[in-house]
Nucleic acid binder design. Sequence first.
DNA 1: AAGTGGTCTAGACCACTAT
DNA 2: TAGTGGTCTAGACCACTTT
Lengths: 261, 261
Amino acid sequence: MVEIKGGRAAEQLPALSIDRNSDRPVYVQLADLIHQQIVDGALNPGAKLPSETKLVETYSVSPMTVRRAINLLSRKGVITTHKGKGTYVKSVELEDAAFNLRDLEGFFSDDQDTTVNVLEACFVSADEKIARKLHVQPGEKVIYIRRLLYVGENPAYYHRGYLINDPKRPIVEAELEVTELRGVFQGSGNQLIKSGDIFIEAAFLDEEESQLLDISDPTPGMILEHIFYDFNDQPLSWGWFVCATDRLRLHARVGLVPIMD
Amino acid sequence: MVEIKGGRAAEQLPALSIDRNSDRPVYVQLADLIHQQIVDGALNPGAKLPSETKLVETYSVSPMTVRRAINLLSRKGVITTHKGKGTYVKSVELEDAAFNLRDLEGFFSDDQDTTVNVLEACFVSADEKIARKLHVQPGEKVIYIRRLLYVGENPAYYHRGYLINDPKRPIVEAELEVTELRGVFQGSGNQLIKSGDIFIEAAFLDEEESQLLDISDPTPGMILEHIFYDFNDQPLSWGWFVCATDRLRLHARVGLVPIMD
DNA sequence: AAGTGGTCTAGACCACTAT
DNA sequence: TAGTGGTCTAGACCACTTT
């Protein structure tokens, strides 16, 4: 009722044993084999896997190779290992859900035509809040940049940000030439960044933001805030993206996913 | 200017060489050593690491151990390896940002007092949309549950969901007894779930939602939608959480983080 | 005491990159 | 051709869990 398997389906199924002539590494093949048994239901969640010694015998590989296959599946969240007890098939845990910016479609669009329109770039005096965020003295001059990012013809993201003003490192010109969304983030010099904090939360768009993003009806919006730090753990920049929620729809998959690597 | 190091600071710094008597595995110690050199700026982003052969000589460990240290740092996103070329210190990539539900404070609160209040649980006829999502016929009976989840005294999350009605598997009672937020998700039987899709997006709260969550002023809200599938890839349940944005503030860190594992 | 996973050795061969 | 990372072997010892 669920699915009808044709005769040719077998060709697409993972191999039933290790193929030493395959380009695919042995430990990946072994991980595939075990993974497939879980997908097929031969190994239910909570079931105990054969011991590593057994797997060594069964598949005629070295202990280290079994170890790597087990490690791979463990990292994938498919199984868990308990020293002295055994290895068990994990059940789906919602906590494992991870939302990656990488697979956010249209956000890092090398292929798509993303254009950047600089609305404003100037020096401003840091107010209390900016001073606190960027670890500068209130009143100190910082760089303020506003940009509108288009995907195709449509304004998609509105970005505002403050950069610390280091005369030894005039980066503003480079900043302004950025045409990639990716580059906007890493604006203040990729090499100098040691770490960064990213926050995402829901927000109402104000009138200016709605107008810039060409949103007529009230639409829920997302804010992506970012702070980058240098190798002395001092802030380099603080900024945030604003967009309609459909531009930043986060997705995660938990449990068994079809493909391995 | 940035920091003043006292004499005792040295004790807290990572060791300068491998300690064979340490509980910490050798490959972790080696990864730590390299990581520390990157943090200290001795190895800048883009710099080439010593070859694995060199590292074997320098630290007097076996090639496999070097390999594992390199692998660990590579998985952490700190370095990248290129076959035939070498290993290089990565610069911070925003795409690496991953927002984990696990480290969402107060969401999976074993320690906190989370209580679940079942507002409604009944059979409903599946409309077009429900039927499509749950792969049932329109008009078919499905289970509808509405719950309000409290953190302490305060209503924090409002959850609505549809469950397929499998008479062979009466799970509703168990569903209703769930007191943990974690359990609400995995409602339809943890063992039966093969995979799930989770979506997060911003939303306006409607009047009922605002009222239930005790929100007077209009507040931006977040929606966490989830669909779980069984081992035949058939949907088991479809539901979504609604909460104020401050209950679901996503955070990710990119670049170098202080602690290793 | 037996079984299990976690770590480690001291090599080996291969594919890829650069000169 | 030399150097590099990727894989793999065939063991070994340890810490932990269960009987």
